[in-house]
């Protein structure tokens, strides 16, 4: 651990001195792609901020939606609903996703056909459109398990939706832990479980956290499956339990943009800013966790 290689840049002397005519062109193209992506983000952000500026004040999170008094309307129920749904989704999908990943990486025999089939299925599931999960949630969770159109149903459905992403990210993170760590742990007499719990998992935390946040970021913006699962568009109370009715920010925004009154369009932009803010806050936590727990071998 004394001579840790520089991680961020490979200083390869044999490449540094050469000049190739395509090199600057390629670099220029890369920069242009980056600039384009950033430009879109900046344009989007400045657009919603200017559009929603008039309503970016405490009314937005202190008040409930109102059709009668647009100037008093707020999105508290949607903000609280979003936080509930995301927290519950995280609570469901993280343990299941990480445990699945541990099984697949540490225990499963990759030469068996069923294990390969499970892997293939998980990868395919990651690409299934979200509305399909909505239909599944409606049929199986809301009606089959008779949980109704509640917070619980929404969180379970969104957990299913993002579970493949969590599993794939967690597997990558676990795989990135060097085999020598495991061997050393086992050689010192630790059981496989002790090795996983005390060596492999802690070392994989940064990667898992990043994957989880990416997955939850996908879940937070979902409106399509929740429309089917009974997220309502006008709700003037916060959920007080997991079997309550609820709404989430994307649904509230969607509803406001459809109203005839211009005030609601401003309100929708302001709510988009709040949604982006929650998203950025989640991402910052991920970055913090990654930097805090990063290990170098």
């Amino acid at each position: 651990m004394t001579t840790a290689p520089a991680r961020h840049r490979t200083e390869n002397p044999s490449l540094a001195g050469r000049f190739r005519p395509l090199e600057p062109l390629f670099k220029g193209m890369l920069l242009a792609s980056l600039a384009l992506a950033v430009l879109f983000l900046v344009v989007l952000l400045s657009y919603v901020v200017t559009e929603g500026w008039d309503r970016l004040d405490p009314r937005l999170w202190e008040n409930f939606p109102s059709k009668l008094y647009p100037e008093r309307a707020g999105a508290q129920s949607a903000i609280v609903g979003t936080i509930y749904v995301i927290a519950l989704t995280g609570a469901f999908c993280v343990p299941i996703g990480v445990m699945t990943a541990i099984y697949l990486e540490e225990y499963a025999d990759g030469s068996r056909w069923w294990n390969r089939m499970i892997e293939l299925n998980i990868q395919n599931l990651a690409g299934v459109p979200s509305i399909v999960y909505g239909i599944l949630g409606l049929g199986v969770i809301a009606r089959g398990l008779d949980l109704g159109r509640t917070l619980l149903t929404a969180s379970l459905t969104l957990s299913l939706l993002v579970l493949p992403v969590v599993i794939i990210a967690a597997r990558e993170a676990i795989r990135a832990v060097p085999g020598s760590i495991r061997q050393a742990s086992l050689a010192l007499g630790a059981t496989p479980w002790q090795t996983i719990a005390r060596q492999v998992l802690p070392a994989a935390v940064p990667g898992i956290a990043t994957g989880v946040i990416l997955a939850l970021s996908r879940a937070i913006g979902e409106a399509a499956p929740l429309l089917l699962l009974g997220a309502v568009t006008h709700i003037t109370f916060n959920p007080s339990g997991i079997t309550d009715s609820y709404t989430v920010l994307p649904i509230q925004i969607f509803n406001w943009t459809k109203q005839p009154e211009a005030e609601f369009h401003t309100l929708a932009s302001a709510a988009i800013v709040i949604l982006l803010f929650i998203l950025l806050a989640m991402n910052s936590v991920a970055i913090w966790v990654r930097n805090r727990y990063q290990k170098r071998w």
């Binding site: 609280v80 936080i83 509930y84 995301i86 927290a87 519950l88 995280g90 609570a91 109370f237 916060n238 959920p239 007080s240 339990g241 309550d244």
Partner: peptide, 12 residues
């Protein structure tokens, strides 16, 4: 994260 989520409701 869970605790944070729990303090939203209640106050009707």
């Amino acid at each position: 994260a869970l605790a944070l989520s729990a303090c939203g409701g209640g106050g009707t």
